[in-house]
């Protein structure tokens, strides 16, 4: 103890104290907060699922993602992306990727549900990561109004207020969310596919994500009370409609009114 007290006026003592303090508060926060904790996969996968998934992975994914999913020049490492990322990317047909481009595009899924499940089991077995949501999150029974507010603040700037999609830079885009399953919406939020940011549980709690899904499913299942939606794209499609269909009909009538029987 004496040795320590002798060194208390050492030039580096202040820095050491600061580091100790930071370590202590940071450690305390990490221990107290579970928000950023990588959750262990709650869904149970059997050993045979993992084994089958590994076979599928080696045959279909390893060219880009590497043996053991550790990544290559052509594709990122999948260690720790979790089952949710696999279920989203493979389940929506984005992976295996059809072609290089600004971002992976939706296409008919290459693997059936069981194979997707097995691939997810394999990737989830590599390291803990976000899991496939349970039925409570995706049941669509949350608060649509609160979900709408969260959607407008967090999602609408890319996906459009009516979730009709929008453009990003250099050929990238935020897709329309109509027809996207509740599970895939949740998985996109927790894994941040393509150019989408990750909305962690600290950012938007699982219950709030449930509200957002409820909002999206509500507006999807209720057609516009005003008639045909014209793509929900706002004033551009409205302007296009009045200049083409509206004015064309009017011009048709003007020609009829001023024509002479000959």
């Amino acid at each position: 103890m004496k040795a320590l007290s002798l060194k208390r006026r050492h030039p580096l003592a202040a820095i050491a104290l600061l580091l100790l303090g930071l370590l202590f508060t940071g450690g305390l926060y990490a221990a107290a907060s579970t928000a950023n904790q990588a959750k262990a996969d709650t869904q149970s996968y059997s050993a045979s699922d993992v084994a089958e998934g590994k076979k599928l992975f080696v045959a279909n994914c390893s060219t880009c993602h590497g043996m053991g999913a550790s990544g290559t020049q052509a594709g990122p490492s999948l260690v720790g992306v979790g089952a949710a990322a696999v279920d989203f990317q493979v389940g929506t047909g984005r992976m295996p990727m059809q072609m290089d481009g600004p971002q992976a595009q939706v296409k008919p899924a290459q693997f059936n549900e069981e194979q997707t499940h097995q691939l997810a089991a394999y990737v989830a077995s590599l390291a803990p990561g976000p899991s496939v949501p349970d039925a409570h999150i995706t049941d669509g029974q949350g608060d649509a109004a609160k979900g709408g507010e969260l959607f407008r603040v967090n999602c609408a700037m890319c996906h459009n207020a009516a979730a009709a999609g929008g453009a990003l830079t250099r050929g990238k885009y935020a897709p329309s969310l109509h027809g996207v399953s509740s599970a895939h919406i949740y998985e996109a939020m927790v894994t941040g596919p393509q150019n989408m940011p990750v909305f962690s549980d600290a950012n938007i709690s699982p219950e709030s994500k449930r509200d957002i899904i409820t909002f999206l499913k509500t507006i999807e299942s209720n057609p516009s009370p005003g008639g045909a939606e014209l793509g929900s794209l706002g004033p551009v499609s409205e302007g296009l409609f009045v200049w083409t269909a509206g004015l064309a009909v009017i011009i048709g009538f003007t020609i009829w009114l001023t024509s002479r029987s000959s």
Binding site: R152, A156, M157, N160, A161, G166, A167, P235, G239
Partner: peptide, 17 residues
């Protein structure tokens, strides 16, 4: 579109033609 709030801006925000 929801109520006006200065923070969000929706994609596809355009004026009338």
């Amino acid at each position: 579109y929801g109520p006006y709030d200065p923070s969000p801006v929706s994609a596809g925000t355009q004026p009338d033609w």
